[in-house]
Amino acid sequence: MSEGAHLRKQEAGRPDASHQTILYLEDLNVSFDGFKAINNLSLHIDAGELRCIIGPNGAGKTTMMDIITGKTRPDSGKAFFGQTLDLLRMSEPEIANAGIGRKFQKPTVFESHTVAENLELAMHGDKGVWHSLWAKLNGEQQAQIDATLLTIGLTEHYRRPAGALSHGQKQWLEIGMLLVQKPYLLLVDEPVAGMTHQEMGRTAELLTSLAGQHAVVVVEHDMDFVRSIARKVTVLHQGSVLAEGSMDEVQDDPRVIEVYLGE
């Protein structure tokens, strides 16, 4: 088998997390028109870990997620998913199929379709809306949708149009749409922006419940929310890791106080 064929076969699979680490970023660098958005960034995420990423605007958080999902190619460095999948050799669809799900800040759901239909569409992937809705679910798929509805707290709303949900419920539905794709790693961008306090509390419960089954990386500006879920926190500043540790360790770090928490 040629090297290229071997890589294609390898990248069509799922990640090998036998050494515990699901995501390796090493010495990544990205510049945009002379601005260094990512500067020698190194970050390791363990399988099943819940990690919070914080940092001021322009710290490189979004660019980092763009690299992980294949939207942005770094100028240099390494990015591996598990032991064997080289993210820098993979397309965005290949990365998604390998088990990396990304939730953007603004929820993107099919508002005219029901909650259950949204989950079905996500499960069937890119086969087309009408084909997906006419395709009959097997028992295992229906059980997975039922379990996902329970996880995201929308069992009673499964027949409601997604457009009729509250902002928080739409966020949970979108997380469910990622969960039915059985990701190993979830990237969640500012999940509680615009939520009520009650919705924030439910979101904290949801994300902490997912850890262990999935690695979850949460990028968030709301420090109260981060404190409510944080196990390990990484602080980015000027495109690199400034500090890492528990929330208490990070918030007591003089460098973090100066560049972020003290703003």
Score class of each variant (00 low, 15 high):
Thr108His: 02
Thr108Leu: 09
Thr69Ile: 05
Leu119Asn: 05
Cys52Gln: 06
Asn29Asp: 11
Met64Thr: 15
Lys9Gln: 12
Gln20Met: 03
Ala47Pro: 01
Ile54Thr: 06
Phe80His: 10
His131Gly: 00
Ile53Cys: 04
Lys103Ile: 05
Phe35Gln: 04
Phe81Arg: 08
Asn39Cys: 03
Thr63Ala: 12
Gly48Ile: 02
Thr62Tyr: 00
His113Ser: 06
Ala12Ser: 12
Glu111Asp: 13
Lys106Ile: 15
Ile67Asn: 09
Ala98His: 03
Ile22Phe: 07
Ala98Ser: 14
Lys136Ile: 14
His113Tyr: 11
Leu23Glu: 09
Ser112Ile: 08
Ala37Lys: 03
Gly13Asp: 01
Leu85Gly: 02
Gly125Leu: 09
Trp134Thr: 14
Ile100Lys: 01
Arg51Lys: 09
Pro107His: 12
Ala47Glu: 13
His124Thr: 08
Ala12Asn: 05
Leu133Ser: 02
Leu43Phe: 15
Glu117Ile: 03
Thr72Phe: 00
Phe110Lys: 05
Ser76Arg: 12
Ala17His: 10
Gly34Thr: 12
Ser91Leu: 00
Leu41Gly: 09
Ser42Gly: 13
Asp86Ser: 13
Leu87Glu: 10
Thr21Phe: 02
Thr63Ser: 13
Ile54Gln: 05
Leu137Thr: 11
Glu117Phe: 06
Leu119Gln: 05
Ile38Gln: 10
Arg14Tyr: 11
Asn39Ile: 04
Glu120Phe: 00
Gly125Asn: 07
Asn40Asp: 15
Ser91Trp: 03
Leu87Ile: 14
Gly99Leu: 04
Gly77Phe: 09
His113Gly: 00
Leu133Cys: 05
Leu121Cys: 09
His124Ile: 06
Asp33Tyr: 04
Thr69Glu: 04
Pro15Asp: 02
Asn57His: 11
Arg14Thr: 11
